[in-house]
Computed example of a mutant assay.
Amino acid sequence: MIQSVRPMKKRKIKGDGAWGYAFIAVALVVFAVFTAYPVASAFIISFQEYKPLGSTFIGFDNYTNTFSDALFWKSVVNTIVYTVLTVPVALFLSFAVAILILPLKKWLQTTFKAVYYLPAVASGVALSVVWLWIFDPMSSGIFNKLIGFFGISNQNWLGSSATAMFSLVFMSWLSSHGTSIIIYLAALLGIDGSYYEAAELDGASFLQKMWYIVIPCLKPTTLFLLVTGVIGSFQVFQNAYLMTGGGPDNATTMVGLLIFNNAFKYFEFGKAAAQSLILAVIIAGIAMVQFKFLGNDVEY
């Protein structure tokens, strides 16, 4: 006996479901236009000698030239040094400031959060101009005035290979902690107070509370800030470009600045695209290692 097959009815999206798909579609279009398409284009360009009026396919030449370029590896080393010196110190300073703000009244917490976050909304160019004045090699620079009290002669902080990298690192230590402070403070406020009460009943000291309660509870937050901090430091461009231009003698040339110079100074777009994809692979690999070794017992 043959049974008749009824045609399937089309599902109609109505009400809230339709609006949900509409909002998702907008996000997908934005992602496709401003993220997926540029990445795909960079991948294609990396195999070409790119020219606006006609590109030539050259295979893996841009990648082989990059791996054999001594300046590229120097920029990688500079970026790693910058990352190692800035990210851990930035996390420690943000955590310490958040701990100091925590016992204050709510209106004082809000005030300090606003003050520390203010540089994040200020113009990076304006902040760099201020730091250029601080590092001024003449006696008018604040740093040279400070060391002058100890009988030390003026230093060319940004113009010497021995001090240029330290100057950028020091600039990073004293700026741009607002976001991390706010995130740490929010995580501290989310810790259950019963943990502290139990610790006090057991006679735990302040340091013991920090080691056995605060630090374990903040491990997911710390891992998040560590991963994002490393990603941001590997993509650093503005500080090196505005403060030193990558000099002297490429002592502060970071990978991001090298990619920018290859693309918009030497117009080697294919090589710049290849280097940007290599940088993306390096960042992804470092992030995977961080999650592998630091995120085993982290629950979100």
Rank of each mutant, 00 (worst) to 15 (best):
I282M: 15
T252K: 05
Q290N: 08
G232Q: 09
T111G: 10
F57C: 01
L207D: 03
V89D: 03
A198M: 06
V77K: 14
T221S: 04
Q109P: 02
F72M: 09
L185C: 04
D136Y: 14
L104F: 13
L158H: 12
Y184N: 07
F224K: 09
W107V: 15
S194H: 09
A36L: 15
F57N: 11
Y196G: 04
I13V: 12
G245V: 01
Q48P: 13
V230H: 01
M254S: 12
S140L: 12
Q275R: 13
P119C: 06
G151E: 05
D16C: 11
I58P: 00
K145Q: 15
E299F: 11
N62R: 05
T66D: 00
L108M: 14
V26R: 05
W131T: 09
W107C: 08
K106G: 02
W73N: 03
F112Q: 04
L104R: 13
G247T: 02
F43A: 15
F150S: 03
S41D: 11
A22L: 13
Q48D: 12
D61S: 10
V89W: 07
L146G: 00
S161C: 05
I80P: 00
Q275G: 02
V255Y: 09
I101K: 06
G246C: 01
P38K: 09
G20Q: 08
S160V: 10
Y195F: 06
P216C: 04
L85F: 12
V39Y: 10
F260T: 08
K271W: 10
A36N: 08
A18W: 14
S4D: 00
V84C: 03
S68N: 15
P216V: 04
K209C: 04
W211D: 07
S68Q: 13
L185V: 11
N296H: 10
I213Q: 01
A70G: 04
V214R: 09
A32G: 08
L294R: 08
F60P: 01
F293S: 06
V255P: 02
K74D: 10
F206N: 02
L146T: 05
G178E: 01
L258Q: 14
A120M: 15
V77P: 00
A120L: 11
A36S: 10
T64S: 05
I99F: 03
F264I: 07
S161D: 06
T86R: 13
A114I: 13
L146A: 02
A240E: 12
F72C: 10
R6T: 14
T179A: 13
L71G: 09
T79Y: 05
N250A: 10
L277G: 03
K145Y: 15
F224W: 06
Q48W: 11
I24Y: 02
Q155A: 06
D297K: 15
K219S: 14
